[in-house]
C-alpha cells in the first residue's frame, strides 16, 4: 500500500432539513471535487429524506475559534443582560411589548 494513495480531500456537510430553517452541520465526506462532494453528501446524509438543501465546504476553508478564545470571545457578553428583553420592567397590564 503506497503512502501516496489517498481518500480524497475532506468536506464538511451542512444540511437544511426544511425550507425556512438554517443549514446545520451534520458531518463530513471525502470527495475529489465539489460536484462529487455534493453527490456524496446527498448519498450519505439524506438517505432518509432528511434534507431540502445541502452545502459542502472544503474542511480546510473553515476557521474555528480555539478553546482559549472562550474567555475573550464569549464571556464579555455575560454581563450585558440589557440585550435580552427580560431585562426591562414593563408596567402591569401593558400588552404587545
Amino acid at each position: 500500500m503506497s503512502t501516496t494513495d489517498n481518500q480524497w480531500p475532506l468536506w464538511e456537510v451542512f444540511v437544511q432539513a426544511k425550507t425556512g430553517t438554517p443549514h446545520k452541520h451534520c458531518g463530513s465526506v471525502h470527495a475529489p471535487d465539489k460536484e462529487m462532494a455534493l453527490q456524496n453528501a446527498r448519498d450519505l446524509y439524506t438517505r432518509r429524506s432528511e434534507g431540502t438543501s445541502i452545502w459542502v465546504v472544503p474542511a480546510t476553508a473553515i476557521t474555528a475559534s480555539s478553546p482559549e478564545d472562550i474567555g475573550p470571545f464569549f464571556e464579555p457578553s455575560n454581563d450585558k443582560p440589557y440585550r435580552h428583553p427580560t431585562f426591562y420592567v414593563t408596567p402591569e397590564g401593558i400588552k404587545y411589548l
Binding site: 500500500m1 481518500q7 458531518g27 463530513s28 471525502h30 450519505l44 438517505r47
Partner: peptide, 27 residues
Amino acid sequence: VQDEAGHGLYLYSAAETMGISRDELLD
C-alpha cells in the same frame, strides 16, 4: 448493509477530528 458503510463513514469522520487521516486508519 448500506447503512453500515454509512456508519463506518460517520465514525471515520469522528476519528479524523483527532488529527488522523482516513488513509492512515484504513492502512
